[in-house]
Every structure is written in structure tokens, then in C-alpha cells.
Design a protein around this nucleic acid. Structure first.
Lengths: 208, 208
DNA sequence: TAGATTGTTAATCGATTAACAATC
DNA sequence: TAGATTGTTAATCGATTAACAATC
């Protein structure tokens, strides 16, 4: 199958547009032109129109995009058929913050299992999410049909954790550890190195 | 001044190389070839060599890069002359997690002031960092000579917070709120939308 | 020296923007 | 209709990779 005609960047922006559309619908808005959508998303109108192409959704030159069906198109394009559950490995400060962040219900994605090496944490609930022991990963992921995982483990533990997750059937990892992960083909890794973002910001503060 | 011959991407990677070099030095390594550096950073050797060009640092075809002077070059290139302090606005779950994360001392950057609207939080210490009231921003930033800020405030509060920060002399903002910020010219904004990363990861889990 | 690696330029690749006929 | 906006292609821009002479 000729996959990968959409870049990750486009996917990310489509998700952002969806949140904007949700907000607009909540405010009672019914139509939005590409320009207004672009302003709210912080991109250009041309970018918006190009991004929408991959979803097959089209608007009207006079009224713009009808938000309800736009919303449905985005949901159909972005979401899996069944609700998509996410696991998080590493319930430290960052892990707990993310659990709290995503338990708000704003996002379509729900973290439904947490894992930690600390036996003290296993069995407890964090922001409503049950924490399991690391070696329960295969069993729990299978039971909950989880294919996406967030890794907020210390950098030393990251490579081994990634292997465990891949072995347990995880297809995509959001990795907060600042280390490249070696995973089997077919497993997607999205790296988010917070330190790198802060260092970039700091650099541009001084460069002016 | 003809600024901006370096892209943010290069800057981010240079910071990453520095952390790798630090680790290597700590392990007693003295030289590293571009290929090995590339493996540890998860990029190509060509990328490494090209990135290094902007720093002016050069290695030896036989031994590779001498790590001590490489480290010095990176520090000179990336760091400000005086130690660079950072403020964080919004001491919620995410804010506290970042305070903890960066107080580890692994990074060169120190968060030396926190701000929150909650009067309960003002005056307290979070992971060793003092929390102030929002309206103390101008005074504290000036006193501490802070030019970089992390924004972990709710999305509704983000635009106003960015304006306050810019007015108080902040030159660069790392923004976690999923909303585009309008800031005066000369102020850099680095957006980090965690939800977007998770949505991307989830998409690629299902797309296979 | 011979050979691998370096710095650097040229070629490629991909993503963004500009342009414009089609459309409501 | 006239005019602004759409979908879509072509042009541009920037970043990555390939190539190779210079070098240790």
C-alpha cells in the first residue's frame, strides 16, 4: 500500500485545525474561511488549503468550510475506527503531568494504562489512570488493545523500554527521552526532546 | 547584522551534540568521529559535519573531533556570556514537572523564577524555585536579568501572558499553549504543542 | 604512503508559497 | 453577474544528502 503520502507535519496541523473547529462549533460558528482558520492556527491560508486536500474535504468559495462536516471529515481521517487508547511508561513528574494534561478530556486520546518500575506506584491510580508494573506490559497492552505509548522514562532506561514496548505490539512511541531509539521496522517513533526546545528558545533570546 | 544564517533545527541539534559530548567526556572518551556522533544523535554523519560548519569547529581526518575543544566551541557558540536564567509562568502540573526536570542540573539552563496567578502559590518554593505573583513579572525579570520564559499557562491566558512577558523585556518564549502568539518584533516564540505530538504518534500507530 | 575522514560545494529532496482557472 | 474564495498545479524556498578534493 502506498502509504506515507502525508507528512507528519500535515497530520499535526490537521489535528490542530480540528481543535479550532471544535472551539468554533462550541461558540456556535457554522462556517470558516481558510484565512480565518489560518489566523487561528498561526499558519498561512495557502497552507490550510493544501493541508485540507489530503482529507478530500472541500468548501464553498462563497461560504468557506462548513464546520460540522469538516469536523466529521477530520475525525474520519485522523481517528481510528475504535477509540484509541494510549499507555504511558514512566510515572515521574513529567509522566504525571501528562496524565493530568490528557485526562482533562479536551483531547480525543485517553491514557488508559500507566507503567512504572517503582513497586510503590503499581496498583495506584494517577489522575484516574491505573499504574501497573513494567512486566505487566504485554498483558495489559493486549487486554486494552493499546498500540500507542508515551515514554517518560529516564534516558538510561529508554532503549530497553522501547524494545519491550515494540515486543508487546506497540506501533508508535512518543519518546521524551533524549536518545535515538532503535525499533523494529513498522514501529513509528516521535521524539520530543523538551531540553532541545528550551535550548533553542534560550539561543534566540541571546541572539538579538 | 546579517542574523539568521542558522536555522532553529541546527541550533537544536548542536545542543544535542553538546550533551553527547558531555556524556562522552564523562566516560573518558577523547575523540569522536562524525559517524559515531551521528549514531548517538540519531542523525546522519553528513548532517553532523554540516551542522558543525556553523560553529567553525574542525576535526582531524584521522582522529575525528577532539571532544574537549569541541565542547568549548559549542559552549562558546550556544551560550550567552553571562549565565542564562529562565522564568516559567504557570505552575500547574506541567509547569512543576518542567521545574523538576530542569532542576536536575543536567541542562545548562536554570529556571530561576516562577509565576502563577494563584495567590496560594506565590511565596512558595517549587523544586527550589521561588514562585511570584504575576504582577511581579517586570520587577523580577529585571532583577534576575531574565530574557527567556517558558509559558505553561492555560490556553485562554496565553495571549495576555505573552504580552506581559514581552512588555517586561522577554526576548524568547517557549510556549506550551496550543495557540499562536502575537508578539512584538524581536521576540522569538518557540511553540511546543504536546497534544500535537501525541496525535501524530497516535495517527502513525493506526496507519500501519 | 594508502586510506579513511574531513570541510564544503553541488544535487536532491521535500515542504511552503504563489499563482490562477474553476466555482459559488 | 462580479468578486472573493476555492482546489490544484507550478515555482520557490530551505533543508538534507551525495559527492569529492583536501588532509591527516
Amino acid at each position: 500500500m502506498a502509504q506515507k503520502q502525508f507528512s507528519g507535519k500535515t497530520i499535526g496541523r490537521l489535528g490542530f485545525y480540528r481543535r479550532i473547529v471544535d472551539d468554533a462549533l462550541a461558540k456556535g460558528e457554522q462556517y470558516l474561511h481558510s484565512h480565518e482558520l489560518a489566523v487561528r492556527a498561526g499558519v498561512t491560508a495557502a497552507q490550510v488549503r493544501r493541508d485540507l486536500m489530503v482529507t478530500g474535504f472541500s468548501g464553498s468559495p462563497t461560504r468557506g468550510y462548513e464546520l460540522k462536516s469538516f469536523h466529521n471529515t477530520l475525525a474520519h481521517f485522523l481517528d481510528a475506527k475504535s477509540p484509541q487508547h494510549v499507555a504511558i511508561v514512566g510515572v515521574g513528574n513529567l509522566g504525571r503531568a501528562l496524565l493530568s494534561y490528557f485526562s482533562g478530556g479536551r483531547s480525543k486520546l485517553v491514557i488508559s494504562a500507566a507503567f512504572d518500575t517503582d513497586p510503590e506506584k503499581a496498583g495506584r491510580l494517577f489522575h484516574g489512570c491505573r499504574c501497573y508494573q513494567i512486566d505487566e506490559i504485554p498483558e495489559v497492552l493486549k487486554k486494552e488493545q493499546i498500540r500507542t505509548a508515551i515514554m517518560t522514562v529516564p534516558v538510561e532506561a529508554a532503549p530497553a523500554t522501547a524494545s519491550r514496548l515494540a515486543a508487546a505490539g506497540i506501533k508508535s512511541i512518543l519518546n521524551f527521552a533524549p536518545v535515538p531509539l532503535r525499533v523494529p521496522e513498522g514501529v513509528h517513533v516521535e521524539n520530543l526532546d523538551v531540553t532541545m526546545f528550551l535550548e533553542k528558545a534560550a539561543f534566540f533570546a541571546r541572539a538579538r
